[in-house]
């Protein structure tokens, strides 16, 4: 099973490229179209990484940052891929300001052990969203970035300042915790 190859909806032909070009020259209407095309995916990423409490504020911050940095987008990757990288960086910075990310990544406790037990549930019906929210932060971060967003372990390592091996270990840990929850 290989990771998903697209982080976002496929590039919207030349129209998106044109909007990017216009936004780079200060066209707010073009940037609004980019916002509307990507906000649902970005909002989902923020909600899973930050929780509901900060999701709207951080989603706003992301698009403000994208506006500030859009001039540096050189088209070397899909715009959506670039945007999601900016988003992850904003999210991690925000979280770091709330708590030292690295400390949590290495030492957090297994939150699911205190989660309410549930009967055996078919994996396909499993409420993965709720279970993800209860994962320890380090495992949750890697699970979201890898399994939901499609980043590689190498990319995740760069984001988090850890090795790809640590990212792999956290991913397996996350999946096994989710499985434990599933089979209770």
């Amino acid at each position: 099973m290989t990771p998903p190859t697209t982080l976002v909806a496929p590039v919207r032909s030349g129209a998106e490229a044109e909007d990017v070009s216009r936004a780079q020259r200060g066209d707010l209407r073009a940037f609004e179209r980019l916002y509307r095309a990507h906000v649902a995916r970005v909002g989902g990423l923020v909600r899973r990484m930050m929780g509901m409490e900060h999701s709207l504020d951080v989603t706003q911050d992301i698009f403000v940052r994208v506006w500030q940095k859009i001039g540096t987008f050189r088209g070397e990757s899909a715009f959506g891929t670039w945007l999601h990288r900016v988003a992850v960086n904003v999210i991690l910075q925000k979280r770091a300001s709330l708590r030292t990310e690295r400390e949590r990544f290495l030492s957090d406790e297994i939150a699911l052990e205190t989660a309410p037990a549930r009967g055996r549930t078919d994996a396909r019906d499993f409420d993965v969203e709720r279970a993800i929210a209860r994962l320890p932060q380090g495992a949750r971060t890697v699970f979201i970035l890898h399994d939901v967003e499609g980043f590689t372990h190498e990319e995740i390592g760069v984001f988090l300042g850890v090795t790809a091996g640590t990212s792999k270990a956290q991913l397996h840990r996350a999946r096994m915790i989710l499985r434990d929850h599933l089979t209770r």
Binding site: E32, L56, R124, F126, V128, D147
Partner: peptide, 23 residues
């Protein structure tokens, strides 16, 4: 099954859209 469910979340985000218009 867990990995497949995770991958489906992104598509579900797009289907649901954003409830609040932040623009």
């Amino acid at each position: 099954a867990i990995v497949a469910s995770a991958r489906a979340l992104a598509a579900r985000d797009v289907e649901r859209g954003m409830e609040t218009d932040l623009w």
